[in-house]
Nucleic acid binder design. Sequence first.
DNA 1: GCCAACGTTGGC
DNA 2: GCCAACGTTGGC
Length: 150
Amino acid sequence: MHYWLMKSEPDEYSIDDLERDGVEMWDGVRNYQARNFMRDEMKVGDTVFFYHSNTKRVGIYGLAEVASRPYPDPTAFDKNDKHFDPRSKREDPTWYLVDVRFKQKFEHPITLEQMKQDKKLEGFRLLAKGNRLSVFPTEERYAKHILSLV
DNA sequence: GCCAACGTTGGC
DNA sequence: GCCAACGTTGGC
């Protein structure tokens, strides 16, 4: 059982969208490191912190869980999709994803500002300078602490 | 909208 | 293999 953090721009896809949909593909990831985490390390049932980036109040807005094994990202094959990647072939896909299932929306988001000021989160990858990865593991000690703040 | 940080591309 | 140029991410 691992913990993950996954970022989304709420204008694109928010925790409210996931609550409405229940389960959704985490499509459009076009970064190899992030892909590798999804393809090689995620397990069904892993806990996901749902982070809103590029918005007024950035932070963790709720919880989801990994709801499928990894499979090829179909949007990479779709010419009409904005995440289309002609290099990804059906017989040899470049991009993979997992499904995520809504678990919980926090009553109050745990803001980035709050986390930055929290001594117990020193070293958490989210807070590292220049971190732009949209999918990455969250060590248990940080995960447990974040959950204690909810 | 700005811009620092980072990942990718491509010429050499 | 190096590295400059470019595109993207994401906080502010």
